[in-house]
Amino acid sequence: MSNDARTDGGTVTEAGPGASAGLLSGLDAYRVLLYLGLLGMLSFFLIPIESGLVTSFKTASGVSGSLPFAPPTGGTFTFEKWRAAFDALGRGLINSALYAIPATVISALLGSFTAYGLTQSNWKQKYKAPVLALLVAGVFIPYQAVLVPLSQFWSMIPLQEWLGFLWALGINNDYASVIELIITHVAYGLPICTVLFRSYYKNMSDEMIEAARLDGASIRRIYRRIVLPLSGPMFAVVLIYQFTQIWNDLLFTLVLVQTESSAAAPIVLILAGLGTSLEGQDFALRMAGAFIAALPTLAVYIAFGEEFAEGVAT
Protein backbone atom coordinates (compact mmCIF):
# COMPACT_ATOMS: atom_id res chain seq x y z
CA MET A 1 0.00 0.00 0.00
CA SER A 2 2.55 2.55 1.09
CA ASN A 3 4.87 1.29 -1.60
CA ASP A 4 2.30 1.94 -4.29
CA ALA A 5 1.72 5.45 -3.10
CA ARG A 6 5.41 6.27 -3.13
CA THR A 7 5.99 4.81 -6.58
CA ASP A 8 3.13 6.86 -7.99
CA GLY A 9 4.55 9.85 -6.23
CA GLY A 10 7.82 9.42 -8.03
CA THR A 11 6.30 9.35 -11.49
CA VAL A 12 4.12 12.37 -11.04
CA THR A 13 6.91 14.39 -9.50
CA GLU A 14 8.80 14.05 -12.76
CA ALA A 15 5.75 14.77 -14.88
CA GLY A 16 4.52 18.03 -13.45
CA PRO A 17 6.66 19.82 -10.92
CA GLY A 18 6.59 23.03 -12.93
CA ALA A 19 2.81 23.34 -12.98
CA SER A 20 2.27 22.78 -9.29
CA ALA A 21 5.26 24.88 -8.27
CA GLY A 22 3.84 27.80 -10.21
CA LEU A 23 0.37 27.53 -8.73
CA LEU A 24 1.22 26.79 -5.12
CA SER A 25 4.60 28.18 -4.31
CA GLY A 26 5.90 26.74 -1.07
CA LEU A 27 4.22 23.41 -1.72
CA ASP A 28 6.39 20.98 -3.58
CA ALA A 29 4.98 18.24 -5.78
CA TYR A 30 5.52 15.69 -3.04
CA ARG A 31 3.29 17.61 -0.64
CA VAL A 32 0.63 18.04 -3.32
CA LEU A 33 0.64 14.34 -3.90
CA LEU A 34 0.48 13.65 -0.19
CA TYR A 35 -2.64 15.77 0.15
CA LEU A 36 -4.17 14.19 -2.95
CA GLY A 37 -3.67 10.80 -1.32
CA LEU A 38 -5.20 12.03 1.92
CA LEU A 39 -8.20 13.51 0.09
CA GLY A 40 -8.61 10.34 -1.98
CA MET A 41 -8.83 8.30 1.20
CA LEU A 42 -11.19 10.88 2.66
CA SER A 43 -13.63 10.30 -0.20
CA PHE A 44 -13.20 6.52 0.14
CA PHE A 45 -14.37 6.75 3.76
CA LEU A 46 -17.10 9.30 3.12
CA ILE A 47 -18.72 8.07 -0.11
CA PRO A 48 -20.76 5.24 1.46
CA ILE A 49 -22.04 7.67 4.07
CA GLU A 50 -22.67 10.47 1.57
CA SER A 51 -24.42 8.14 -0.85
CA GLY A 52 -26.62 6.89 1.98
CA LEU A 53 -27.46 10.42 3.09
CA VAL A 54 -28.55 11.71 -0.33
CA THR A 55 -30.47 8.50 -1.06
CA SER A 56 -32.44 8.84 2.18
CA PHE A 57 -33.98 12.07 0.82
CA LYS A 58 -35.07 10.61 -2.54
CA THR A 59 -38.41 9.30 -3.72
CA ALA A 60 -38.58 5.79 -5.22
CA SER A 61 -38.19 7.17 -8.76
CA GLY A 62 -35.28 9.32 -7.57
CA VAL A 63 -33.53 6.28 -6.11
CA SER A 64 -33.73 4.26 -9.32
CA GLY A 65 -33.43 7.17 -11.74
CA SER A 66 -30.44 9.16 -10.48
CA LEU A 67 -26.82 8.50 -9.61
CA PRO A 68 -26.51 7.08 -6.07
CA PHE A 69 -24.19 9.85 -4.92
CA ALA A 70 -25.99 12.76 -6.63
CA PRO A 71 -28.18 14.94 -4.41
CA PRO A 72 -31.95 14.72 -4.95
CA THR A 73 -33.31 17.26 -7.41
CA GLY A 74 -36.63 19.13 -7.38
CA GLY A 75 -39.33 16.52 -7.80
CA THR A 76 -37.41 13.61 -6.33
CA PHE A 77 -36.73 15.28 -2.97
CA THR A 78 -38.75 14.05 -0.01
CA PHE A 79 -38.72 13.87 3.79
CA GLU A 80 -41.19 10.99 3.59
CA LYS A 81 -38.59 8.24 4.18
CA TRP A 82 -37.17 9.96 7.25
CA ARG A 83 -40.68 10.31 8.65
CA ALA A 84 -41.44 6.64 7.94
CA ALA A 85 -38.12 5.53 9.40
CA PHE A 86 -38.70 7.62 12.51
CA ASP A 87 -42.18 6.14 12.95
CA ALA A 88 -40.70 2.65 12.78
CA LEU A 89 -37.59 3.31 14.87
CA GLY A 90 -38.68 5.98 17.35
CA ARG A 91 -39.68 3.51 20.07
CA GLY A 92 -36.41 1.64 19.44
CA LEU A 93 -34.42 4.79 20.25
CA ILE A 94 -36.02 4.93 23.70
CA ASN A 95 -35.73 1.18 24.28
CA SER A 96 -32.04 1.20 23.34
CA ALA A 97 -31.36 4.11 25.69
CA LEU A 98 -33.18 2.26 28.49
CA TYR A 99 -30.53 -0.46 28.64
CA ALA A 100 -27.51 1.16 26.96
CA ILE A 101 -27.18 4.04 29.46
CA PRO A 102 -27.49 2.03 32.72
CA ALA A 103 -25.32 -0.80 31.36
CA THR A 104 -22.63 1.71 30.32
CA VAL A 105 -22.54 3.45 33.70
CA ILE A 106 -22.59 0.23 35.75
CA SER A 107 -19.93 -1.52 33.69
CA ALA A 108 -17.63 1.53 33.82
CA LEU A 109 -17.99 1.81 37.61
CA LEU A 110 -17.46 -1.90 38.20
CA GLY A 111 -14.54 -1.89 35.77
CA SER A 112 -12.95 0.90 37.78
CA PHE A 113 -13.50 -1.03 41.05
CA THR A 114 -12.01 -4.20 39.61
CA ALA A 115 -8.96 -2.50 38.12
CA TYR A 116 -8.35 -0.65 41.40
CA GLY A 117 -8.63 -3.82 43.50
CA LEU A 118 -6.18 -5.59 41.18
CA THR A 119 -3.69 -2.76 40.71
CA GLN A 120 -3.27 -0.56 43.77
CA SER A 121 -3.57 -3.18 46.47
CA ASN A 122 -0.79 -5.31 47.87
CA TRP A 123 -1.34 -8.94 47.32
CA LYS A 124 0.87 -11.42 45.64
CA GLN A 125 1.43 -11.02 41.92
CA LYS A 126 1.52 -14.81 41.68
CA TYR A 127 -2.19 -14.95 42.61
CA LYS A 128 -3.20 -11.72 40.91
CA ALA A 129 -1.88 -12.86 37.52
CA PRO A 130 -4.43 -15.64 36.87
CA VAL A 131 -7.31 -13.39 37.93
CA LEU A 132 -6.06 -10.73 35.52
CA ALA A 133 -5.42 -13.24 32.75
CA LEU A 134 -8.99 -14.55 32.99
CA LEU A 135 -10.36 -11.00 32.86
CA VAL A 136 -8.19 -9.99 29.88
CA ALA A 137 -9.07 -13.17 27.98
CA GLY A 138 -12.73 -12.28 28.54
CA VAL A 139 -12.28 -9.33 26.15
CA PHE A 140 -11.68 -11.67 23.23
CA ILE A 141 -14.40 -14.27 23.80
CA PRO A 142 -16.57 -14.79 20.69
CA TYR A 143 -20.08 -14.36 22.11
CA GLN A 144 -21.35 -17.29 20.05
CA ALA A 145 -19.59 -19.52 22.57
CA VAL A 146 -21.92 -18.41 25.37
CA LEU A 147 -25.20 -17.81 23.54
CA VAL A 148 -26.99 -21.13 24.14
CA PRO A 149 -26.20 -21.17 27.89
CA LEU A 150 -27.18 -17.50 28.05
CA SER A 151 -30.61 -18.28 26.60
CA GLN A 152 -30.95 -21.23 28.98
CA PHE A 153 -29.89 -19.11 31.94
CA TRP A 154 -32.37 -16.32 31.29
CA SER A 155 -35.17 -18.79 30.63
CA MET A 156 -34.51 -20.32 34.07
CA ILE A 157 -34.60 -16.99 35.92
CA PRO A 158 -38.22 -16.12 36.84
CA LEU A 159 -37.71 -12.44 36.03
CA GLN A 160 -41.35 -12.10 34.98
CA GLU A 161 -42.52 -13.03 38.49
CA TRP A 162 -39.96 -10.91 40.32
CA LEU A 163 -40.93 -7.85 38.34
CA GLY A 164 -44.67 -8.43 38.81
CA PHE A 165 -45.01 -5.09 40.59
CA LEU A 166 -43.86 -3.31 37.39
CA TRP A 167 -46.42 -5.06 35.20
CA ALA A 168 -49.05 -4.13 37.82
CA LEU A 169 -48.14 -0.50 37.14
CA GLY A 170 -49.13 -0.99 33.51
CA ILE A 171 -45.66 -1.49 32.04
CA ASN A 172 -45.55 -4.03 29.21
CA ASN A 173 -43.93 -7.22 30.47
CA ASP A 174 -41.71 -7.38 27.36
CA TYR A 175 -39.54 -4.90 29.27
CA ALA A 176 -38.12 -7.74 31.37
CA SER A 177 -35.65 -8.10 28.49
CA VAL A 178 -34.28 -4.63 29.30
CA ILE A 179 -33.10 -5.97 32.68
CA GLU A 180 -31.62 -9.04 30.97
CA LEU A 181 -29.78 -6.85 28.47
CA ILE A 182 -28.37 -4.59 31.21
CA ILE A 183 -26.96 -7.49 33.24
CA THR A 184 -25.68 -9.31 30.17
CA HIS A 185 -23.93 -6.23 28.75
CA VAL A 186 -22.40 -5.42 32.14
CA ALA A 187 -21.04 -8.95 32.49
CA TYR A 188 -19.50 -9.08 29.01
CA GLY A 189 -18.38 -5.43 29.03
CA LEU A 190 -16.56 -5.70 32.36
CA PRO A 191 -13.37 -7.27 30.98
CA ILE A 192 -12.68 -4.43 28.52
CA CYS A 193 -13.58 -1.77 31.12
CA THR A 194 -11.19 -3.40 33.58
CA VAL A 195 -8.39 -3.53 31.02
CA LEU A 196 -8.85 0.15 30.11
CA PHE A 197 -8.88 1.29 33.76
CA ARG A 198 -5.97 -0.93 34.65
CA SER A 199 -3.77 0.59 31.95
CA TYR A 200 -4.61 3.99 33.48
CA TYR A 201 -4.11 3.00 37.13
CA LYS A 202 -0.79 1.31 36.42
CA ASN A 203 0.62 4.67 35.33
CA MET A 204 -0.91 6.62 38.19
CA SER A 205 1.54 8.09 40.69
CA ASP A 206 1.85 6.02 43.87
CA GLU A 207 3.01 8.82 46.14
CA MET A 208 -0.34 10.06 47.33
CA ILE A 209 -1.65 6.56 47.81
CA GLU A 210 1.44 5.53 49.80
CA ALA A 211 1.10 8.63 51.97
CA ALA A 212 -2.58 7.89 52.60
CA ARG A 213 -1.71 4.32 53.50
CA LEU A 214 0.86 5.46 56.04
CA ASP A 215 -1.86 7.62 57.60
CA GLY A 216 -3.88 4.42 57.99
CA ALA A 217 -6.54 5.13 55.36
CA SER A 218 -8.61 2.10 54.38
CA ILE A 219 -8.62 0.78 50.82
CA ARG A 220 -12.17 1.97 50.38
CA ARG A 221 -11.27 5.47 51.59
CA ILE A 222 -8.26 5.70 49.29
CA TYR A 223 -10.49 4.83 46.35
CA ARG A 224 -13.14 7.39 47.24
CA ARG A 225 -10.79 10.22 48.14
CA ILE A 226 -7.85 9.76 45.77
CA VAL A 227 -8.33 7.25 42.95
CA LEU A 228 -11.92 8.01 41.93
CA PRO A 229 -11.43 11.81 41.69
CA LEU A 230 -8.34 11.23 39.52
CA SER A 231 -10.15 8.77 37.22
CA GLY A 232 -12.17 11.41 35.37
CA PRO A 233 -10.36 11.28 32.01
CA MET A 234 -10.46 7.48 31.92
CA PHE A 235 -14.14 7.46 32.82
CA ALA A 236 -14.74 9.64 29.77
CA VAL A 237 -12.88 7.15 27.57
CA VAL A 238 -14.61 4.08 29.02
CA LEU A 239 -18.10 5.56 29.05
CA ILE A 240 -17.81 6.60 25.40
CA TYR A 241 -16.36 3.30 24.29
CA GLN A 242 -18.88 1.21 26.21
CA PHE A 243 -21.86 3.28 25.13
CA THR A 244 -20.88 2.88 21.48
CA GLN A 245 -20.33 -0.86 21.86
CA ILE A 246 -23.59 -1.51 23.71
CA TRP A 247 -25.73 0.74 21.52
CA ASN A 248 -24.30 -0.85 18.36
CA ASP A 249 -24.55 -4.50 19.40
CA LEU A 250 -27.09 -6.63 17.59
CA LEU A 251 -26.31 -10.18 18.74
CA PHE A 252 -27.50 -9.97 22.35
CA THR A 253 -30.65 -8.07 21.39
CA LEU A 254 -31.42 -10.73 18.80
CA VAL A 255 -31.03 -13.52 21.34
CA LEU A 256 -32.65 -11.89 24.36
CA VAL A 257 -35.40 -9.78 22.75
CA GLN A 258 -35.76 -12.08 19.72
CA THR A 259 -38.40 -10.23 17.74
CA GLU A 260 -38.80 -6.67 16.53
CA SER A 261 -42.48 -6.87 17.38
CA SER A 262 -41.57 -6.89 21.09
CA ALA A 263 -42.57 -3.68 22.85
CA ALA A 264 -38.98 -3.45 24.15
CA ALA A 265 -37.27 -4.00 20.77
CA PRO A 266 -34.00 -2.01 20.55
CA ILE A 267 -33.31 0.18 17.53
CA VAL A 268 -30.67 -2.09 15.95
CA LEU A 269 -33.08 -5.02 15.97
CA ILE A 270 -35.80 -3.03 14.18
CA LEU A 271 -33.28 -1.55 11.74
CA ALA A 272 -31.86 -4.97 10.78
CA GLY A 273 -35.22 -5.94 9.25
CA LEU A 274 -36.26 -2.50 7.98
CA GLY A 275 -37.08 -1.91 4.33
CA THR A 276 -36.71 -5.54 3.24
CA SER A 277 -39.90 -7.20 2.04
CA LEU A 278 -40.99 -9.66 -0.59
CA GLU A 279 -41.67 -6.85 -3.07
CA GLY A 280 -38.06 -5.70 -2.96
CA GLN A 281 -35.89 -3.41 -0.93
CA ASP A 282 -36.68 0.16 0.00
CA PHE A 283 -33.16 1.56 0.10
CA ALA A 284 -34.19 5.14 0.84
CA LEU A 285 -36.01 3.90 3.95
CA ARG A 286 -33.07 1.71 4.99
CA MET A 287 -30.66 4.65 4.65
CA ALA A 288 -32.87 7.01 6.65
CA GLY A 289 -33.21 4.31 9.31
CA ALA A 290 -29.46 3.74 9.38
CA PHE A 291 -28.88 7.43 10.06
CA ILE A 292 -31.46 7.58 12.84
CA ALA A 293 -29.88 4.53 14.52
CA ALA A 294 -26.40 5.99 14.10
CA LEU A 295 -27.23 9.49 15.37
CA PRO A 296 -26.52 8.92 19.09
CA THR A 297 -23.15 7.25 18.49
CA LEU A 298 -22.25 9.75 15.77
CA ALA A 299 -23.04 12.63 18.13
CA VAL A 300 -20.87 11.06 20.83
CA TYR A 301 -18.09 10.43 18.33
CA ILE A 302 -18.10 13.96 16.94
CA ALA A 303 -18.14 15.48 20.43
CA PHE A 304 -15.54 13.14 21.97
CA GLY A 305 -13.45 11.83 19.05
CA GLU A 306 -10.20 11.99 21.02
CA GLU A 307 -11.52 9.86 23.88
CA PHE A 308 -13.00 7.38 21.41
CA ALA A 309 -9.65 7.02 19.64
CA GLU A 310 -7.94 6.47 22.97
CA GLY A 311 -10.48 3.81 23.91
CA VAL A 312 -10.02 1.78 20.72
CA ALA A 313 -6.22 2.14 20.72
CA THR A 314 -5.72 0.66 24.19
Binding site: F45, N248, A290
Partner: peptide
Protein backbone atom coordinates in the same frame (compact mmCIF):
# COMPACT_ATOMS: atom_id res chain seq x y z
CA UNK B 1 -11.38 11.78 12.77
CA UNK B 2 -12.95 11.00 9.40
CA UNK B 3 -10.83 7.89 8.77
CA UNK B 4 -11.88 6.52 12.16
CA UNK B 5 -15.53 7.54 11.78
CA UNK B 6 -16.90 4.21 10.40
CA UNK B 7 -15.56 2.47 13.50
CA UNK B 8 -18.11 4.34 15.63
CA UNK B 9 -21.00 2.99 13.54
CA UNK B 10 -22.92 -0.19 14.24
CA UNK B 11 -22.45 -3.21 11.98
CA UNK B 12 -26.19 -2.93 11.45
CA UNK B 13 -25.76 0.61 10.09
CA UNK B 14 -22.73 -0.10 7.90
CA UNK B 15 -24.46 -3.17 6.47
CA UNK B 16 -27.27 -0.87 5.24
CA UNK B 17 -24.73 1.45 3.57
CA UNK B 18 -22.88 -1.39 1.87
CA UNK B 19 -26.01 -3.20 0.77
CA UNK B 20 -26.69 0.02 -1.16
CA UNK B 21 -23.08 0.48 -2.33
Amino acid sequence: TIYLLPMSLSFVVTAQFWAWM
